[in-house]
Design a binder for these strands. Structure first.
Lengths: 184, 184
DNA sequence: ATAACCATGTAAATGGTTACATGATTAG
DNA sequence: CTAATCATGTAACCATTTACATGGTTAT
C-alpha cells in the first residue's frame, strides 16, 4: 500500500491540502494504523493529479504559499475501490521501544524509567484522543476501526500500569539467562 | 533502527544463521514487534562481519549450501548497547487490513467476511503461539515484551469477536456519511 | 507428485525518510 | 521573544521489498 492509495483514502473523506493529509496520519483517523510524511505525500499528490485521480484548486493566501486543495475524482474513487479489494498484506509493526525493553538488562535503571514513562504517556495521549471523538453518524466500518484502536490502547495502558515493575525494578533480570553458543 | 541492529539483537540471544534470524522475525521472539526479510538480513550480516561485530563459522552440509553460523563479538555487544541507549522512535504501524475495514462500505459483503475471518484467524494464531511459550528463566525485560504482545493479541481477538457485526452486517454503513467538499 | 522446508545470496526496483529551501502568522 | 503552526515542494539518501538464481530433503 503506497502513499498514493493512502492519499486517495484521506480525500475520500473530504477535500484536503497536503498539509491536512499529513495531519490525518498524525492525529486524524488514519493515525491508528498508518503513517505518511510530507516527502511521500506531495509527490504522491502530483502523480495522482497527473493520472486524473484527483483535482486541485489553488487558493491564494497572503504571506503563505498558495493553499492547494485536492479533491478525489470518480476515477480516483474507482482506483480506491480497486485498491481496497486486494488481499491485504500482514500488519507490519516496528517498535523500537519494545526492542529496547527486550534488552532492558543492557540499560541503566534511569534510562529504563525514562523510556517507560515516555511510552506510557504517549499511549495515554492516544487513548484520550480516541475517547474524545464523537461517534455520531460515523459509518460502521470506521467505528470498527476506531473501536479496534481504542481496545488496543486500553490494553496497552492497562498492561503497562500493571506490569511496569518488570522493566522498572532495580535489577532488570530475574536470573540473567546466559547466552548459549560459541562463548561456552 | 536498521537491519544491522536487529541482527545483533537476535545474535545476542544465541548464535544463528541468516535463515534462523529470519525465523526470529516470523515466529520467534521478535515477531511481535519487528519484521525483517532475507534481502535485509544477508547484506546486514555481511556488513556486521566486515565491521568485526559478528564472526562467522561455516559448516559444510551435504546437498545444501554451507550453513553459516554467526556469533556476536564483544564489539558487537557494545554496538548493541549503544543502539538501545538511543531515544526510541515512535512505533510505526502499517495495517492494510484496518485500512480496508475503514472503507468497508466500498466492499461487498463476502469480501468483508473473508478479510474479517482471515484477520481473526491470524490473531488467534499469534495469541496461541505466545500462550504456548515457556516463561521459566526468561529475563524480566523479555517477559514484559511477551506480556505486552499477549495483552494486545487478547484485546484484538476479544474486540473482533464482540464487534465483528460492525463490518459483517448486510449493510456496512449505518447512515452513509456524505462526503463534504467539491461534490456539493 | 507436490508443497513446504532448508539454505544462501545478488540485483533491481520501489519507495519512504531526512535535509534543505522559504517565510508569514499566531499563541504563549 | 520564541516556539509552534501553517504551507509547499525537491533532491539526496537510505532501506526494504521483490525477483531471480540454485537445489536437495522431507512430509503429505
Amino acid at each position: 500500500m503506497d502513499a498514493r492509495t493512502l492519499c486517495l483514502g484521506v480525500l475520500m473523506l473530504d477535500d484536503a491540502t497536503g498539509y491536512e493529509i499529513k495531519k490525518s496520519f498524525e492525529e486524524g483517523p488514519f493515525a491508528q494504523f498508518y503513517h505518511c510524511g510530507f516527502g511521500s505525500i506531495y509527490p504522491a499528490l502530483g502523480k495522482l493529479r497527473a493520472e486524473g485521480l484527483v483535482t486541485c484548486t489553488e487558493l491564494a493566501q497572503q504571506g503563505r504559499p498558495g493553499k492547494k486543495v485536492y479533491s478525489i475524482t470518480p476515477a480516483g474513487i474507482d482506483a480506491l475501490k480497486e485498491a481496497v479489494a486486494q488481499s491485504p498484506a500482514d500488519d507490519k509493526i516496528r517498535s523500537e521501544t519494545l526492542f529496547m525493553f527486550f534488552f532492558a538488562d543492557l540499560l541503566g535503571e534511569a534510562r529504563r524509567r525514562a523510556i517507560y514513562d515516555g511510552y506510557l504517556d504517549h499511549y495515554r495521549g492516544l487513548l484520550q484522543s480516541v475517547r474524545e471523538l464523537d461517534n455520531t453518524g460515523v459509518p460502521r466500518g470506521r467505528l470498527f476501526v476506531r473501536g479496534f484502536g481504542l481496545a488496543i490502547y486500553e490494553a496497552v495502558v492497562r498492561y503497562m500500569e500493571e506490569h511496569g515493575d518488570l522493566v522498572l525494578g532495580g535489577d532488570a533480570s530475574a536470573e540473567p539467562e546466559p547466552r548459549r553458543g560459541a562463548a561456552e
